[in-house]
Design a protein around this nucleic acid. Sequence first.
DNA 1: ACCTGAACACCGTTCAAGT
DNA 2: ACCTGAACACCGTTCAAGT
Lengths: 214, 214
Amino acid sequence: MSRASPTGRPGRRAQLSRDAVLEAADAILRSEGVEAVTIRRVAESLGVSPMALYRHVADKDDLLVLLIDRLAQRLRYPPLPAEPRARLLTIWRTLYEGLAEHPWLPEVLARRRMIAPSVLAAVEEIHAAFCEAGLSLEEAVLAYRLVWQFTLGALLVRAGRTPDRPSVQEAVRGAPDADRYPLLARAAAAWRQAYGRDTYHADLEVLLDALLPR
Amino acid sequence: MSRASPTGRPGRRAQLSRDAVLEAADAILRSEGVEAVTIRRVAESLGVSPMALYRHVADKDDLLVLLIDRLAQRLRYPPLPAEPRARLLTIWRTLYEGLAEHPWLPEVLARRRMIAPSVLAAVEEIHAAFCEAGLSLEEAVLAYRLVWQFTLGALLVRAGRTPDRPSVQEAVRGAPDADRYPLLARAAAAWRQAYGRDTYHADLEVLLDALLPR
DNA sequence: ACCTGAACACCGTTCAAGT
DNA sequence: ACCTGAACACCGTTCAAGT
């Protein structure tokens, strides 16, 4: 340990790396869920002191955001159709389905919203497809933003469809006061159905029809 | 204290009420922000023990959700136009602007998503307007859901536009690698502009155009 | 340069007991 | 019936010190 490190820099050799931290955090995430991903818990699993992590991540939210980036990196896109509209459908759906597997994700994005750098390639593809379909670059930016916001909201709502804890929403929808809210009372069945199934795919087509020149 | 309570029920007279708890929580929310709204802090401000609150709210998230309901109750809608499309614009915009004042809201909704019972009247109005514009009740339900998901996502993105901490998003958008992401590099300026201003109003018109029969 | 130890300043929530 | 006290089982993060 008295030799200089291989990089020629002085001081103690690093035992930890950001990647090792993220790998350990990811393992805990998969096996025990997000609530278990704490600074202390990750440090324990690595056999280091909690404070050692702060050399490699800024803070806990930073750790979670970097974790989302890892998940985004693992997204695999199917072969993309040549036709722009079909390509957009494929990319967005892959993004949505991939992110929907992690119900804790919207909560983290609500605290520290950002797009993981790893999805930049997909974002580029989306812009290209919008332009190819006839939008100007400025229009493509606005179209991307609109669909992204919708996707985020859809992920958030979907994250809420936990079968165990019936949401307040359902409770209210189940038996709305027929005198004060006649339409909602009549629509209760349709509501239950709409919230039981995922309408992202169909909704996405509505959005693209509105955004693309016919 | 040995007399029966006015309600005729036995036992100690209630010192606290759900309303008193919410009022205290709301005051802390306004003066110190959401982070300060803790069970212990609210109890302290009421001069009771933390555990006393659990008789009136289920847990901390329940407290926050009830708080959102209070905020929704205070929303004031301007006079609604007779024409369905204009009415929809007015209601959604009022909802959006009102909720956008509370950047912490999407995070709570991400954990315990629900619609506050207080917005049911607005939801009923929205369904009525969609139907009046020519949609069936089932279509109205789906249209409502689509716009609500978009609104949630827009609120989430907007909550992120804190001027102090530049988001990762902006950092990446500021200088995307021109070789790998040529379109994003060219679009950087448009991106900054799009994320600098709020496009909810314009986007809402796009959505309504897509959803309403022409 | 990188990591540790101890402490700070909190949390939400349980449980059994008091009035 | 309603509230309290004490404790449990944690958090993230600071700071000064060690190697």
